[in-house]
Design a protein around this nucleic acid. Structure first.
Lengths: 222, 222
DNA sequence: CCTTGTGAAATAGTTCACAGCA
DNA sequence: TGCTGTGAACTATTTCACAAGG
């Protein structure tokens, strides 16, 4: 592999989107695709797609475009989807249970291998087919059986503490569902899944539109 | 209000993050905060915070910083959080049910006012205290009782169709939980909640780290 | 003719650094 | 003194536009 220099994060974020569409096309038997068509399907400019892919190699053929199978395979390698990843979940409230029972991660190479909670009532119980362990023994558990990714689904108040523990346990990538901004040391990667933030930025635009609509008659008559 | 020109989307996306932290500080009785402290808490540079806020007005005081209550109130107005928003949910599978029963939206002004599904077995049932209606009557239902925001939690195959129907029904903001990229006409705002994409971009970095660690000894000896 | 890969140009976003005010 | 608001400088990202290859 070319093992690239430093690729902008935005580029990395788009690759899974390309990958998903291409994998679907591949499953449907499509053999080639142009940056134009891929871009049309995904709402991205063709130039951007070509630039993004060019960071990693020269996968296309002038005149015909990209081989779908080839590109799927390249993206699998680039994104590290050619192996399985071990995830642990912390928090088995409503949300944690929903995540644990979600069947959509497994087929893509993500295995839930551990579940932790702080509540006496949950510890020892079973969630998503896995026995819930005490979050206080998480650090030592992960020492013996490391995990690649931590999923945090605890209340906001507990999130920082849980994330600190995950980091101490050597987890370098965290998916945070708790509605709070937490600190992580350099080298640890954290992503938030926070629908409320999305809703609140959407209402900014909705409010603007309402204001415009209300003031439009005034402007028209002015 | 200043009713600003065109604010970059990234700025709008940060406001709810500021808002959340400030609301918490306000609840704890904090009276003022500097851009420095806010930035430290949220992992943002102070200059960025000042620039972001300056798009909307001059809320700070030299020497002392920002009044927390004042800023919370300003952000409430800017983000349109001074009123309630009507949301409809489409899809009552596992994920849809989890969303419907999530109690975290209500306190922030988001009300679930309608739930739709395509399955005969679900229609007429109850989810999150609301009767599930046939998605085929969604358009006319929303004509009578409009909604501001649509939440899509259907399988990927159905998502585009459902979103088209929401758009026809006049919904201008959509939160898409379906694992697929869909098309919306200009003027309609869509945000995806897609944990798998986050995981897949995290594994890019995880793979890189693994590669580095493995090749480090070779480099050291070279 | 069609479509890639890519420098160069353009646009967008962030950070600096400091005047000015409390 | 401490901190905001803000032009100016810088950095990042996107788009353009075209040579070159199939």
């Amino acid at each position: 592999m070319p093992l690239p220099a430093d690729i902008p994060e935005v580029v990395i974020d788009r690759l899974p989107i390309y990958y998903r569409w291409l994998a679907r096309m591949d499953a449907e038997g499509r053999s080639t695709v142009s940056s134009q068509e891929l871009g049309d399907a995904l709402g991205v400019t063709p130039a951007q797609i070509r630039k993004d892919l060019a960071y990693f190699g020269r996968f296309g053929k002038q005149g015909s475009g990209y081989s779908v199978v080839r590109l799927v395979e390249e993206l699998r390698l680039i994104l590290g989807l050619n192996r399985r990843w071990r995830m642990v979940l912390v928090g088995v409230g409503r949300l944690g249970r929903a995540i644990a029972s979600y069947q959509g991660f497994g087929p893509d190479g993500f295995d839930l291998v551990g579940v932790f909670d702080a509540s006496e009532e949950e510890i020892g119980g079973e969630v998503g087919g896995i026995t819930v362990r005490d979050v206080r023994e998480m650090e030592s558990s992960l020492g013996a059986e490391p995990a690649d990714i931590g999923i945090v689904a605890v209340p906001a108040e507990a999130a920082q503490e849980v994330i600190d523990a995950l980091v101490r346990a050597g987890v370098r990538s965290i998916l945070n569902y708790a509605p709070i901004t937490v600190q992580v040391p350099r080298g640890v990667r954290i992503r938030r899944i926070d629908p409320l933030l999305s809703l609140q930025s959407m209402t900014y635009h909705l409010s603007l539109e309402t204001d415009e609509r209300e003031s439009a008659p005034l402007q028209a008559s002015a």
